[in-house]
Design a binder for these strands. Structure first.
Lengths: 181, 181
DNA sequence: ACTAAACATGTAAATAGTTACATGTTGTAT
DNA sequence: ATACAACATGTAACTATTTACATGTTTAGT
């Protein structure tokens, strides 16, 4: 699949940046749906240079710190566009360890299950809170009338999706807890 | 993490079964949240036997087909219980290639984006339909008054979660399409 | 001046997961 | 009878991902 490849191409299309910057991007809203560690990013960058999809210029930061600013080549841009338009099948299993445990709920006592679900509910609510705060920041910075041509439209869509996802999860947890009385 | 290990232990706790049966289980509702191919399952079974968590008896099917019926050992059962009660942190990135594309929506023309979203909407609706049919089957087979002690309670919870997840995704897709006018 | 956090880049080793290779049996429908 | 789908089990090679090892610089705060 090489999804990381396209994640990097997409990030570089938005802006020239270093491997470190890419790793940082995965810590933001994007990280809700894709991420990679620097140990995977640096080798991938090397590979993409070898394939001619990206290139870099070395920039001196401060006195002597060499950093590599990567950017897309024409070929890289074309490959990104091709991937963006590809209509891929929805993949089935979004792995979720908590739901795996849920499937085996019959092997637990009712009180243990409640404990597990309550704990998950707390974590999910905390996460939702965090995401809502990020959205609020985005809205104060760029205004709340987002539209297709806003530079932050992708960011906005991803955040709203993450928020709705958490809300849905929370509702299901609460409903399931009620089911257990 | 060794999550597959626990998936297998959990399945074997429900019932003695073969590697093939385990692979089949991942094709059902469970597969919405965890799955593995037989090429990963068979070596893992071997490893779990070596670790003393499971054991098997060889059974002859028909004339000469040897199949291995695996079951939990006492140690295996204990390890499963320990994992079930563990309160793990919610992991951040549920990887989703479509949402990665969404993050890069600014690199697309409006019409391309609409096409992408419409296509995803169709796929998601189809998937929702499938899940709803599975739930209907479950309800005709076991009745619709599910409770904690129903043998199919885990199955039911997983299905309802998968359904709510798709509904949420669909709503977000529709809302986002409206946003693009 | 010092210190801690953030910036910056890599490699090595291990685990996890997918695709491809490889083989044979059994049950069901025609 | 025969053919096809489902049952059944494995290994090999490759790709993806994580954890650990390894090192050095710059910036901001005290």
């Amino acid at each position: 699949m090489r999804v990381l490849k396209y994640a990097i191409l997409g990030l570089l299309e938005q802006e020239k940046q270093t491997g470190y910057d890419i790793a940082a991007a995965f810590k933001g809203a994007l990280g809700q749906f894709w991420s990679a560690k620097h140990s995977q990013i640096y080798p991938e960058l090397k590979k993409l240079v070898a394939e001619g999809l990206i290139e870099f210029e070395t920039v001196i930061q401060g006195e002597k710190l060499e950093k590599k600013l990567y950017s897309l080549t024409v070929t890289g841009e074309a490959e990104l566009k091709e991937w963006m338009q590809r209509l891929e099948a929805v993949d089935v299993s979004h792995k979720d360890e908590f739901m795996l445990k849920t499937f085996f709920i019959s092997s637990m006592k009712k009180e243990e299950a409640k404990e597990l679900f309550s704990n998950q509910l707390v974590s999910r609510k905390r996460k939702l809170d965090e995401l809502m705060r990020t959205l609020a920041e985005l809205e104060t910075e760029f205004g709340s009338n987002m539209h297709f041509s806003s530079s932050e439209f992708g960011h906005y869509l991803v955040l709203t999706r993450a928020i709705e996802r958490e809300k849905g999860y929370i509702q299901w947890l609460e409903h399931s807890l009620q089911f257990m009385e």
